[in-house]
């Protein structure tokens, strides 16, 4: 049964391209990616989007729509045109029929909320017309006519440099980003939140408050999401024999239980 699959950043795909940002933008942008699917309607592309903290800017390069299905609630959205996509609380299955070509910017968690003064809860699972958030009609047209992914990345970077010029993330935002980076790096025994708090020089209640303000979630929940993404990546590479204790799980069963909690599926179905 085809239940879709998760594509990781290090996978080379003919219909999936990825580029990391200019050093001046690494504080704001995770990466840029493009889905270009020239297949037939008879054999659409199925991709899974895990619950995450990211906000995406999606620029439609062809007028073909695609489907996004919330696998917990069954809610279906047709995605057409350029979109602002909020962070996901549930697993979403994306079905791309023929001729889908979309360019994405994946922002650092919480950045767009800070930049546009949006309450994080308002963009949870958002799937809205991009023009309502960031009116960029000329940029959209330029991106649609740019001949390559590399040129689209350059165009987007120029726009972001202008937009973000002078924007300095505050102390709380910086602490949250540092903590998120630490969640991603943790191996062995150094994944306890109390230890991370000590390293960052903040108390847990303060860290909890910063996370709630910037992302709308507790540090523990965010750590759980990032740990699961990493765990699934390792599971795809090494199978159930991997030592899941290395990334903070009690054992493989703990990882599977986490998978069911977050996605309602076992890791092998993702």
């Amino acid at each position: 049964m085809n239940k879709g699959r998760v594509i990781y950043e290090d996978e080379a795909e003919p219909h999936f391209r990825l580029a990391y940002p200019h050093p001046g933008l690494t504080a704001f942008v995770e990466y840029y990616f493009e889905v270009n699917q020239p297949a037939t309607l008879a054999n659409p592309l199925y991709l899974n989007a895990l619950p995450n903290l990211s906000n995406l800017l999606c620029v439609s390069l062809r007028p073909q729509s695609w489907l996004s299905i919330n696998q917990k609630s069954g809610a279906l959205s047709t995605v057409k045109g350029s979109r602002f996509l909020g962070n996901l609380t549930d697993l979403h299955l994306s079905i791309y029929p023929a001729s889908v070509h979309e360019f994405y910017v994946k922002f650092k968690p919480g950045l767009l909320g800070k930049l546009f003064r949006i309450n994080p809860a308002e963009v949870e699972n958002a799937n809205a017309d991009l023009m309502n958030f960031i009116p960029l009609p000329e940029l959209e047209e330029h991106l649609q006519t740019a001949p390559s992914f590399r040129e689209r990345v350059s165009l987007m970077e120029r726009m972001l440099m202008n937009r973000l010029y002078g924007f300095t993330p505050d102390y709380r935002f910086a602490i949250v980003q540092t903590a998120l980076n630490r969640f991603g790096q943790t191996t062995g025994d150094n994944f306890h939140l109390s230890q991370i708090c000590r390293e960052l020089g903040v108390s847990y209640p303060s860290l909890h408050r910063y996370f709630t303000e910037v992302l709308g979630y507790s540090p523990k929940y965010c750590q759980k999401l990032l740990r699961f993404k990493k765990g699934l990546h390792l599971y795809k590479r090494h199978g159930s024999g991997y030592s899941f204790e290395e990334i903070g799980y009690t054992d493989f069963s703990h990882f599977v239980k986490n998978s069911r909690q977050l996605t309602q599926r076992s890791p092998s179905d993702l």
């Binding site: 037939t40 309607l41 008879a42 659409p44 199925y46 489907l67 299905i69 069954g74 299955l93 079905i95």
Partner: peptide
């Protein structure tokens, strides 16, 4: 071949993927 595969793809998206 093409048309039947497309109808099956649509029915699969409705029944299996959306209605689970």
């Amino acid at each position: 071949c093409e048309s039947l595969a497309e109808h099956l793809a649509v029915m699969t998206a409705v029944l299996r993927d959306t209605l689970q």
